[in-house]
Amino acid sequence: MRIVHYVNQFYAGLGGEEAAGSGPRVLDGTVGPGRLLAQLLGDAHQIVATIVCGDDYAASTDAAAAELLEMTRDAGAELLVAGPAFGSGRYGLACARLVAAAQAAGLPALAAMHPDNPGLTEAGAAPVVAAGATSRQMRPTLQTVAAAIEKLATGATLTVADGRVARAARTGRLVEQRAAARAVELVLRRLAGERDLTEVPIGGFDVVAPSAPVEAAASATIALVTEGAVVPAGNPDRLESARATRWLRYPIEGIDSLASGEWESVDGGFATTAANADPNRVLPLDAARTLEREGTIGRLHNEFLVTVGNGTPVATARRFGVEWAAELRKAGVQAAILTAT
């Protein structure tokens, strides 16, 4: 099979974060991890081209996947392989969106990433095989990928036995007993000694490793971002009041304060009387602008990012987070102040 391989700027050797904003390009043959993958595949399959793109470019917008897919097709792919992205959020999101787009367009595709990668849920119908958490697991991960490619080439479907990541889906259904009766039942069984019984598994929350601190706020570009649904009055772009599917950006260049009547919160999850009387209570533009003028903040980013955090599934919130990080990095922002309601 003719394989096109997708990797990010780092694994292509173009650079780290400083090159993350670079756009897509096509390179002949194998690059970086593709060399080892080609070795593992032997002569039966050939990596004909490698598509490279910076993570910030690829992860900050949905549209990048279509662009990358077109390049993949032009390179004559019979199979697209993306990653391994390990635990990297932006890389994982880019890989997942690309394989999802390819699979949906009829081009077989395969991605590799760690099962906890926030991009995983974006892979759509495309198979994803498990990678280790970091590139220290490069060789075993590529062995899994190579075996998966062999199997896909025979026309077979990948299963959990092939390292495919199975997602535990929580499927809703109607049952005989109402929830209050089940709660009484559960209390009684726990009191009788079955201490660990629960309907919903407890725990499993992400622990985020903090990034390095900003050296000096006085020389940094700082962004204001919020999930408090602050939008221009009248909500011209129709941000949802709950269950956000998207996020928006609004320019604040030349604006010193969010005036009541010009801006409002459309969040359906909390009482907005105080927010609408003074929208700076949700997005502290007035105070940040003063601190910028006084030189405490080097520069305030010229737009704010906003969504509504009300009934948002965790997976969606994680995706917004990855996209915001990519977006802000691309814009040269070093830190963000996120207000949450």
Binding site: V208, A212, P213, V214, A220, D286
Partner: peptide, 19 residues
């Protein structure tokens, strides 16, 4: 509000290892 933003600036310039 000014104090909150100042404190946020202190936070982003402080090295931490966990939340």
């Amino acid at each position: 509000r000014r104090r909150l933003v100042q404190r946020a600036l202190e936070a982003v310039t402080t090295a931490i290892e966990r939340p």
